[in-house]
């Protein structure tokens, strides 16, 4: 089945890379309310309906829990975890 490619806004915050697909985001705001660290907020970049799109960086750093990805009804969010830096000595 031929797939369709969607361009993403990419944001790096805390422990995650936050991809937002503006061609899918309807601006419902469910992700903002569900985020446990309140890092997601509205940006001036718009989605395909002309609504604001969400992005991280407005609260505590992202913990890459992927809750926003799970609750997005439009699959407009993808979270990639940033691998911990193993060379760092604690």
């Amino acid at each position: 089945m031929p797939g369709k490619d969607f361009a993403a806004h990419k944001y790096v915050d805390g422990r995650g890379v936050f991809y937002l697909f503006p061609a899918l985001c309807k601006g419902c705001g469910l992700c903002l309310e569900k985020c446990p660290v309140d890092t997601i907020g509205w940006t001036e970049r718009t989605g395909f309906l002309g609504t604001s799109t969400p992005a991280p960086g407005f609260g505590d750093p992202c913990i890459a829990c992927r809750l926003c990805e799970f609750v997005c009804p439009d699959c407009a969010i993808r979270i990639d975890k940033i691998a911990p830096d193993k060379t760092r000595v604690h």
Binding site: M1, G3, L24, K26, C28, G29, L49, T51, P73
Partner: peptide, 12 residues
Amino acid sequence: ATENKPHRFCPG
């Protein structure tokens, strides 16, 4: 199916 996304449901 990715071809017909975004889907027709309301926001939220």
